[in-house]
Every structure is written in C-alpha cells, then in structure tokens.
Design a protein around this nucleic acid. Structure first.
Lengths: 362, 362
DNA sequence: AATTGGTTCTGGAACGTTACGGTCAGGCAA
DNA sequence: TTGCCTGACCGTAACGTTCCAGAACCAATT
C-alpha cells in the first residue's frame, strides 16, 4: 500500500501557479488576497487533501508553540487523583483555554531521571507544580529559554511564583488547637524528599526537606507550638511517601502505636487526615472528643465530613499561574502571587483531661 | 534590558570549530563522537547558555512531536470535574507516560466555533473523547494527517475506536427493572445535541441525537421496554444541557411534576442520578420503596450511596485509547475495542402497587 | 503625464534542526 | 604495497512554514 505524503503549502502553490506566501495568506491573512483567489486556494487545498499549514513548521517560524507545559513531579495520572492537584489543573486549564493556549502535560518517569521529555516539549512556557527543589526536571525546565511559573515551591531567582503562605496558615491552625489546650500532638506529613521514608522524621530531616510546601507547613507548626513552650524536637512527625488515605491511616496507626496519648493528630493534607479519621474510628476513638484530627487543603470530601482544615484556593492558584505565564511578556519583572487561605472550623474539641475520659467522657 | 537570543546549535558548532552534525550527535548519538569532544561540546554549551536542541526544530525535522492531542468538546475544566471523564483522562495519561509521550490538551472554546486550536496543535495523533458527531472540531481533527482514536463516539471510517456497548448495557439494566415489574418509568439524560434544550425530548430528538453515548443508552432502554409492550413514545425523557447533580435534581423535579406516578427514574449518568436522589428525598419519597433511581458509569460516589448503575471501565478506556494510538504504526487496519460493562445491583425495589403504598407501605 | 495610494501578489531568506551519504586518517591483514 | 575496515567527523539538503521588502497593476488625484 502506497502511503502518499500529504500535500504541502509549496506543492499547493505550485499547482495553483501562485507563490507560497499567497497560499499562506489564504489561511492566515484573508484580507491580503482577493476573495476569488482565496476561494480557489481553499478549494484546491480540499481537492489535493492539503490539511492546512503544518503546525510544527509554523511554530518554528513564528517561535510560538501555542501551548503551555505543565511539569508535575508525580506520575501524570496522580494529578487526576489528588483533589488539590486537580483543582490546580482545572484552574490552569481555564486560564489556558481563555488564552487559546494548549496545555501540554509533560510525561515524567518518576523512577528514571529522564529529563529528555522536558527538552522535547514544544511549549512557550512552563508551569511547575509542587516538585522538590532538587528535582532534575525542574533544573531542565529552568535551563530552557522560556518563561516559567512555579507553584507551591520556593522562590527561584528571576522566576514568577504562585502560592499560599503555608507556614502562616498552618501556624494559624495550630493556634486554634493550642487555644483549645492541645499540647501533646503528633503530625502526619507527605514526603519530604525524593527518597521513600515511611517512618518518623526528625527535625533534621524536616529542615532538609526538599518539598517546600511540607517544609513550610511543618515550620508553621513548630513556630506555634514552640511559642507555647512545646519542645518541637519531641513532637512526633510521621512521613509518608505515597499520598492516599490508606497511607494516612497506616501513618496514623504508626503514630498512635508509638504515642498513644496524643490529643491531636495534625495532618499536612486532607487526604492523610481522612485516613487518620478512619484509623481513629477503627481504634474506637471518638473524634473530636477523644482525638482531634486536622487536615489541610479544604477538599470537598474533607468539608463534607466536617474536618478542621485550611482551605486554600486551588482553582485560583491554577488560574493565577496561567495568567502570570501568559501575560509574562507585558510585565517585565518576576512577580509573586500569594493567595489567601482560611481556617475552616470543623470538629475540634479540647483535649480529654485524662486517659479515662476517652472512655467515660468529661 | 537586552534580551540576548539564545545560542543555536549552529553558533555552538562555529564556536567549537566543528560541524553542526557533530554538535547534534553530542546530544542525540553520543556513540558517534569521541568522549573527549563530546565533553567539550557540552561544556561549551553550558558556557554559552545553549539550552540543547530546539524541540520545535527537531520536531519539524524528525516529523515527531512527542505528544498526543486530546480533544474534548466541553471546557477543558469540565473534564476535571466529571468523574467518568477524569477516569478516562487518568488512563490515557498513564498510557502516554508509559510511552514517554506528552498529553496535549487542546483548548476548545465551546462558544465560538474556533477550530484553529486543532490546527495549531503540534501532535503525533489525536484522541477524541465524547464529542457530538457534528462537532466541527472533530472534523478538523479528522482532516489532519495523523492517526486518531475516537472514544465514546460512533464509528468513523478508517479511525480506531474505543468504547463500550452502551446500548446493550443500558438494555441489561432496564431488564432488571422490567423483571421487578417497573413499567411506568421516566428518563433523565444528558444533552443530545449542541443546542441547549433543558426540557422533554421526544423520540424524534432522541433519534437525531448527536451524542452517540446518550443516543445509544436511550436506544437500549427503548429496546428493552418496547419488548415488554411499553410504548416508548410515551415514556417521558427529560434532557439537560449541563451535567451536574444540581441539574439532575432539577430535571427530576420537572419529570416528577409532569408524571407523579412514575415508579422508576432511569438516568443516563450517575451524576444525574445523584441529583435525582436528592430531589426524591426532598419530596419525601423513599428510595427504592417509593421510587427506584438508577444511574450509569459506576463512579465512586454512586457506589457509595448504593445506586444501581452500570459500571464501565473508564480507566481502561483511557489506557486502551492511548495504546491504540501509540501503537498505531504497527498494525495497519483501523481497530475497535469494546470494553465490558457490569450492572451493579444497588438499591432497587419492585414498584409500589398503588399510590397509597408510597405512604403506608406494602 | 506624472504622482500618489492602495490592493494583490511574489521571491528569497530565514527559523534550527536532523538525515544521509560522504571523506579522511589510521590500523591491520595479506 | 594493496585493499579493506572502522571510528570520527563533515557538508549539503531537506523539513514546511512565515516574514520582509518590494514589484506589478489599477484607479484616482494632481
């Protein structure tokens, strides 16, 4: 079977006996030629099966790809499962759509450090969402000569940034718990670095964390509790590499096994918190009377079950990232957008005064 | 501020006094030059700030873009809200990731019929997910000389296809209701065409439906009920343009207002069904004793509330679409993959024998 | 008749890369 | 010496488009 190469703009021009420019104009600048000729061009195009100007060749010439690259550290598919990431994606896609730009999801193999996909992506700019600061993919993006916006990440010299004040938000949440009287708390957090470490994370590991968001949230907690005399180094922090409620439940189990008399479990994400709730229920602990559980993000499921959490505007984060990137030409200087957060009061209670209260009530 | 143009492969070659080919090989075929020279090339590249071969120019030359285009008829952001679409997206992204291909979400402005974005997308192939058969974007995709896979759509000549047997699945579901004795049923369906029609849809509109999936599901119902002597033309079908449970509730209200003595409301999606459940509750109707409600898709939320529905493998649909597209070169002929479905028995009951039973029980 | 202005169309020169078929030097066996 | 092979590198020709400066033509104005 003979696979005929599709017609090109040049072959179409030759067939018509006009210049290539004229054919190009027929598609891109209809006012530059007579309606009659344009009709003839388009008709001949249809006859020869010419599909219109090749997008790649056009991109090369115009130096515009018409798409924004999105880099996520996780599997692409993860983004479609984590509600917070999803909200971001939704907001970003709205911004792109509004500007007529495509959204190019860069395939990242989290196992291999294969940065080639970043170099292969024909895009006009990148949005980098929540990757560790030492991620080689991030470095690859920064090496590309296109504008970039980072989100939920530390500031990078000369690069626009979108985020929330994770540290202050978590501190606020902690202060509520402190006001209620909680002093013996434990923490569940997401991965702090690229290596799998499903265990307790000491202060050193916390301070060396490569995920800005997690590091900042832990720091916010440390701020708050240290200010009321709690020795942060003694606060147990359990880390989990994978992010699922199942994982959160397992982490909560590990935490409560080691420290059964905690009065509150603070989680750096709602997903983890939902798992913690499951584990608490499994142990027969009443929430919040026996144990207070808090989350972070403000996902729908969390608000449905009345979890105390920090609501962050994930949709707006995506939109802001898109707008920043797509309007990048106009304004010159790298900018930063910090969006507001809100502590959502869900079910919290003062800590039980004695262990007995867990069983007999106050 | 002077924005220096980034170095090109050619300028790097000139600086080094080697040919462009050699520089290219330093990146793409390390075995083609001596390690020493390669080291020098890469080092000079770093020194001059050469970011590596331009992806667009490479794509033009190699005729590979390294990305798959995805066309959705809705706002991109819609896809991130509908669980079924999301599952598809997740599966597709897994397939792409596995093959090292990017996923290029084509921006579609649903208001304007602006097909340009389809022509602008530098991709090696398209996946088209659930768009109406008369959608100009679909036509634009088909005009491009790249392989295409359609999903949840009617067969297109010479194009690979992935889907389920919507008609048979819905027929099966209907047969369960029929076996329970339901004869006076009403239907809630999603949009049947591109125009907004939030009202009853007669048989003519049903048969002229441009959304394959909806049309097939309605046809499955018609098959089943007609075979037990129900006059399908008299079965009320309420259509909704938007797809949300709020909308489903409103549609259910419209349906039940017009036909208060229905014994079952059959919905062509779980989202609509969840809305119908809400409306039933609002009216004080017990489900399933007073009114049976069924859905379609098998989303998590539906299974959680015990909705009777058809579970379809959305993740596998996405994966299959990706594999079909990315393996398209090897096999020649257009192929079709029909995935299995399963009726999930949730809460159904026989219809109440009289209207009084609704209030006093059987 | 010359000038102006506008529309319509043209030809050559990029855009930055990779494919392809070479050249050239040196080693090695006959 | 001759012939052959191999590793290392090179030069040219695409890839398919859009940009730019201008040419040709026609109508209207001076």
């Amino acid at each position: 079977m003979h696979m005929r190469r599709p017609a090109t703009l040049a072959s179409l021009a030759a067939e018509l006996g006009v210049s290539r420019t004229t054919v190009s104009n027929a598609y891109n600048r209809p006012d530059q030629l007579s309606p009659e000729l344009r009709r003839r061009v388009l008709e001949t195009a249809r006859r020869l099966g010419y599909p219109g100007p090749d997008p790649v060749a056009r991109s090369l010439r115009t130096r515009k790809a018409g798409a924004v690259g999105l880099l996520l550290t996780e599997n692409l598919s993860y983004a479609f499962r984590d509600p917070a990431a999803l909200g971001f994606l939704e907001g970003l896609s709205m911004a792109c759509e509004g500007a007529g730009q495509g959204l190019h999801l860069v395939p990242v193999n989290p196992e291999r450090e294969d940065v080639a996909a970043v170099h292969r992506a024909g895009v006009d700019g990148f949005v980098v969402y929540s990757v560790p600061d030492d991620d080689p993919h991030l470095a690859a993006v920064l090496s590309r000569p296109v504008p970039t916006v980072v989100c939920d990440q530390p500031r990078v010299e000369g690069v626009d940034r979108v985020g929330i004040d994770d540290r202050a938000a978590m501190q606020q949440l902690a202060e509520r718990l402190i006001a209620l009287g909680h002093r013996r708390v434990g923490v569940l957090c997401m991965r702090l670095a690229r290596d799998r470490h499903d265990d307790f994370a000491g202060t050193e590991r916390q301070q060396n964390a490569h995920f800005h968001v997690q590091k900042a949230r832990l720091a916010g907690l440390a701020d708050a509790f240290a200010s009321v005399g709690v020795n942060w180094a003694e606060v147990p922090v359990v880390e989990r590499f994978d992010h699922s409620s199942t994982c959160g439940a397992a982490a909560a189990a590990q935490l409560l096994d080691a420290e059964p008399d905690l009065t509150a479990v603070i989680c750096t994400s709602d997903i983890l918190a939902l798992g913690a709730l499951t584990e608490a229920r499994r142990r027969g602990l009443r929430v919040p009377q026996d144990l207070t559980v808090t989350g972070f993000d403000g996902i729908a499921e969390a608000e449905r079950v009345g979890l105390t959490t920090v609501r962050q505007p994930v949709l707006d984060k995506g939109k802001a990232a898109g707008k920043l990137l797509l309007g990048a030409v106009e304004h010159g200087r790298p900018r930063q957008i910090i969006l507001p957060t809100e502590v959502m009061a869900g079910s919290t209670a003062a800590p039980p005064r004695t262990a007995e209260e867990r069983w007999f009530g106050p």
